[in-house]
Nucleic acid binder design. Structure first.
Lengths: 214, 214
DNA sequence: TTTATTTTTGACCATTTGGTCAATACGATT
DNA sequence: AATCGTATTGACCAAATGGTCAAAAATAAA
């Protein structure tokens, strides 16, 4: 029976273990997000982490194990902004806040955004289970919430599913397609301009039809 | 001096040559768009093309040559919808038509969309020159056109650059993130729903401020 | 039918890459 | 200081992969 200190750590992770595992994960995030799964090599990750390759295999069962660990961790962070959207809050502000959180995320966590994008682009081979188990229920639930807002006339009649897709697409675009954007506009402008633009855009998109709203 | 029948074909390409080159490119589009540059192998491309690996190296100078050829060809197709946007046309309709063309493109050419997305995600290592030389000037020119429409009050005041980004993001999203969308909604609905949603969205976004328009 | 030219391929190669392993260095506990 | 479990690594390995090449087919030209 193997030691197996990776998947389900038998006991408590030592100080040094915790430090090295997170070093590796951070390095791997760099490399995977920049080159994709196949494009990343253990040697690159090792160098970036400041550890030897065998040492990395001491902390993780293999390349895929690192990648999966990364994606699993990411999922939580990734869904959080949507989780926070409150059914009890003021509809328009709730959605606009969601957009803001998503855009901040693209700005502050571009590596994570690209890691995710890469995985989905390749058909989500290692992530579909997570999507099914975690994203789908949350998505359905929040769609229902938005639908009630629509039904109550609090926001314009809109398909909640495509609204969410639009939010994902427009915000993540600034992280995922950064290389293209950098060619087209001064890169420092991008996020400040985007913030204003998206705020205005979604405000107009969601403004309830003029009639007798409360 | 080498034969060099790849880059700048010295003479006229024979029937068989033309057929095989396009077979290879089509197969490569499949493989590259599905696995990314590094993830794709010459063997996969060879099998998909129904040719032997050495035979493929007979028609192209190497893996990178195939990839670059593909990207170069794609660029033209990819920019076309934006090229067609007519400065003389009716502003709102011109932009909405652009959105429609872009969405049709995501629907009909998902492989191309993913190939492009993959390349940009990796930092556009092989495409930045093309972006600078082809995309940038076109982008600037069309931004100027849209800006005049804004200045004339024909459409709502909006940053043309971010408007275009939003169009790219929302349309390409349906091709690039297909794997995710397929988990969330019945896949056949996606594009029809998207068409209506995006039409409404951009119509609202661009509706000129209510005042005395012509 | 010959001859010249273009295609095609089996057999190889050098490198890269994910992964193993025995041996060594290290750190805490007694 | 001796001991024991934890960390670390140099040396390897097998498989995968991009690419080469000389020889054989196939095709076109004479």
């Amino acid at each position: 029976m193997k030691a197996e200190r990776t998947t389900t750590a038998g006991k408590k992770p030592s100080r040094i273990q915790q430090r090295n595992r997170s070093r590796i994960l951070d390095a791997a995030l760099d490399v995977f997000s920049a080159h994709g799964y196949r494009g990343a090599t253990l040697d690159q990750i090792a160098v970036a982490a400041g550890l030897s390759k065998p040492n990395i295999l001491y902390y993780f069962n293999g390349k895929e194990d690192i990648h999966v660990t990364l994606l699993s961790q990411l999922m939580e962070t990734w869904l959080d902004p949507l989780v926070e959207m409150d059914a009890e809050g003021e509809p328009l502000e709730e959605i606009l806040d969601y957009v803001r959180r998503k855009l901040d995320m693209a700005k502050d966590l571009p590596r994570e955004s690209r890691l995710f994008a890469n995985e989905i682009l390749q058909g989500a081979p290692r992530m579909r289970p997570h999507l099914q188990a975690d994203l789908k229920p949350l998505f359905d639930q929040k769609c229902a919430v938005i639908q009630t807002w629509v039904d109550q006339g609090k926001i314009a009649p809109i398909d909640p599913r495509h609204l969410i897709f639009s939010i994902w697409a427009t915000t993540q675009h600034y992280a995922d397609f950064d290389a293209q954007i950098a060619v087209l506009i001064p890169s420092d402008d991008a996020f400040t301009g985007a913030k204003h633009h998206l705020e205005e855009t979604f405000r107009k998109m969601l403004a309830p039809q003029l009639s007798d709203e409360n």
